[in-house]
């Protein structure tokens, strides 16, 4: 079993990880109006998983992530590309922003939009890419 971080580090990581992931999703969703966006959120969540990787080891991190990072990368690219497709059916140019305001009971009026979908694509791509590299390097180290 590869040597893991110290107990203190492991507990901090377990505590910080959910907070960081929450924070990254928060940055992602409000990206349109305040500083944030898919790219930065993706980086934040990658750092969160990197912290988890440093505290524990590669196997646990892969387990925690659920899907293989390269799958996330591919999924992100797919979502980003597909977010531009519906416009074609509305006779508009590729990647024109489509807005669908729906009101969610809790938050009031929430604007769903294709740029947001694109942003999620960006988020997954960044996460997938960084984690592919980090995990590959960490695995090669053992």
């Amino acid at each position: 079993m590869t040597p893991m971080g110290s107990l203190i580090l492991r507990t901090t990581a377990r505590l910080l990880l959910p907070l960081l992931i929450l924070f990254s999703v928060f940055i992602l969703l409000r990206g349109h109006d305040e500083p944030g966006g898919g790219f930065i959120a993706g980086l934040v969540v990658s750092v969160a998983f990197a912290l988890y990787l440093f505290a524990f080891d590669v196997a646990r991190t892969r387990e925690l992530m659920g899907a293989d990072p390269r799958f996330l990368l591919g999924l992100g690219l797919l979502i980003a590309t597909l977010s531009g497709v519906p416009q074609i059916f509305f006779g508009q140019a590729f990647f024109t922003g489509l807005w669908l305001p729906i009101d969610v009971p809790g938050l009031g009026e929430v604007k769903l939009s294709t740029p947001l979908v694109f942003d999620i694509g960006v988020y997954l791509v960044v996460l997938g890419a960084v984690m592919t590299i980090v995990l590959a390097l960490a695995e090669a180290e053992e």
């Binding site: 971080g5 110290s6 203190i8 580090l9 901090t12 505590l15 910080l16």
Partner: peptide, 13 residues
């Protein structure tokens, strides 16, 4: 307040 000591701990160790 949370991260500073943990970082210091890690690097001290």
């Amino acid at each position: 307040v949370l991260t500073a000591p943990v970082a210091a701990h890690a690097i001290a160790r």
